[in-house]
Amino acid sequence: MKRWVAAVLLSLGLLSGCNQNSGPKRITIGVSFETLQTEYWVAGFEAIKAELKKRDIAVLEAIADGDANRQLEQVNNFIARGVDGIIAVPKDAKTIIPMIKAANAADIPIVLYNRPAGKTDAKSVAVVADNPGITKATVQYMCEQAKKSGKKHKALLLMGDLGDINAVGRRDGFESAVKEYSDIIEVVARVPTEWNQEKALAGVTNALQAHPDINFIFTSSDFLFPSIVAALKNADRYKRIGEEGHVLLGGFDGDPTAYQMLKDGYLDADGVQNVYFESEAAVQAVLDLKAGKSVPEVIRDPGFVIHQGNLNEMSPQMWGAQVKNAQAGK
């Protein structure tokens, strides 16, 4: 019996040895996402994997399902496996810090995708969208449209989870834009959604009841549009651009819903995070760090504003448009 066990163990050991020694070692990058709950994260995840495939780099993937501890375990697994680099979307700015420290200790480069870490002396590179800048440009475009109409506008802002630095940046971008147009825009409601669709629906419904004359709505993320549209429809306020009673609408992300709304003439403007720029920058940064090159601590995605005036020209760069077209089988 013992001999049998020894023989099995030996052959397994030989097999594993063959496995590890075969061919030149391919570069392997671990990709850890906190969640794949919204289309934005799915698009980012797919774009990173496509970018790695293009460069013939092997991928180890892990999704933490919103659990920071699971993310820590998965990143530790990557480190134990001896990956050449890690790209991570942190659960939040703070819980990622021990993971960065662990990667630093193992001398494995780590790049944070779309969410930066909190204050720490641990070393990482973050690729983030210019949230305040893109939001400001989007809201400025909306304000210009409002100005053209010659009427005063009452505005509603949907804020994200203010524990998320991206949500804070978008709120600040909005506030700084409307400040410049204070003669025509009055912000009458600020709805804290905590990135929750039900809260957004309740918040918009309540705000429309309290201020039936709201005619300017900006959401800090496109994934809240279904809630806004539902609330507007309930109040019979969902009208196309140019129709009587149209509510000026703006959003942030560049997702497929926003693309469809732009195409159908309901949405005025959308701030787009350039998923393709961010994923390429993240992969390049991790390879540069691995090669010992110096990389800035923060790489900013300048993004862009898409609106009715530049829809055809900019939609090839809008990730939501790509997802929508792929779904339609184009």
């Binding site: 594993s16 375990e73 530790n76 480190i79």
Partner: peptide, 23 residues
């Protein structure tokens, strides 16, 4: 565990074993 060894690089490394236990 044994049948995973051939397909799982790094499974038996001491780092990974201590990882499994800390998880």
């Amino acid at each position: 565990f044994l049948s995973s060894i051939p397909f799982t690089p790094g499974l038996t490394s001491s780092n990974n074993i201590s990882n499994i236990f800390s998880n």
